[in-house]
Simulated assay, not measured.
Amino acid sequence: MALTDEAIGRIKGMIVSGEIGPGDRLPNEADLGERLGLSRNSLREAVKALAVIRVLDVRRGDGTYVTSLAPDLLLESLSFVVDFHRDDTVLEFLQVRRILEPAATAMAARRMGHAEVAVLRDLARGPADASVDGLVAADLEFHRQIAAGSGNAVLCSLIDGLSGPTTRARIWRGRTQQGANRRTREQHLAIVDAIANRQPDLARSWAAVHVAGVEEWLRRAL
Rank of each mutant, 00 (worst) to 15 (best):
I11S: 00
V16M: 14
A51S: 15
I8Y: 01
R44M: 00
I53W: 01
E45K: 05
R60I: 11
L38Q: 03
G13C: 12
E29Y: 01
D24A: 09
I53M: 04
G13Y: 13
S68P: 03
E45F: 05
A30W: 01
K48Q: 08
S68K: 11
L32C: 08
G37V: 05
S42C: 14
A30L: 10
S17Y: 12
R54L: 07
G37H: 06
L50V: 03
L43M: 14
G18S: 09
G13P: 05
D62V: 15
V66M: 08
G63S: 08
S39P: 06
G63T: 10
S68L: 06
T64K: 04
S39A: 14
R40M: 10
N28M: 12
S68Q: 09
I8P: 02
A30K: 06
L43C: 07
V66L: 14
T64Q: 07
R25K: 09
D31E: 13
R59M: 14
P22C: 14
E29V: 01
P22G: 14
N41L: 06
R10E: 02
V55G: 04
R54N: 11
L32G: 01
Y65P: 05
A30F: 04
L36N: 03
T4G: 08
T4I: 12
V58K: 13
G21D: 13
D62T: 11
G13I: 09
R35A: 10
I11K: 00
E19Y: 12
D24W: 11
E19S: 08
D62M: 10
E34Q: 09
G18P: 11
R54C: 06
K48T: 06
R60V: 08
I20F: 12
S39W: 03
V55T: 09
R10Q: 06
E34I: 11
P27I: 06
G13R: 10
G23A: 11
L43R: 03
A30M: 06
I11R: 00
N41G: 10
V16D: 15
V16Q: 15
G61S: 11
V47L: 04
S17H: 12
I53G: 00
R44Q: 04
D31V: 03
A51H: 05
T67S: 10
G61N: 13
G37E: 05
L56E: 00
G21R: 15
G61L: 06
D5M: 15
A49T: 12
L3H: 04
A46C: 05
G21Y: 10
V55P: 01
T67Y: 10
S68D: 09
E34R: 09
T67V: 15
A51D: 05
P22I: 14
S68C: 07
V58D: 14
L43T: 00
G63A: 08
R25C: 10
G13F: 11
R10M: 04
I15L: 12
R40C: 04
E34H: 13
D31C: 00
V55N: 05
V52P: 02
P27A: 13
S17I: 13
V16W: 07
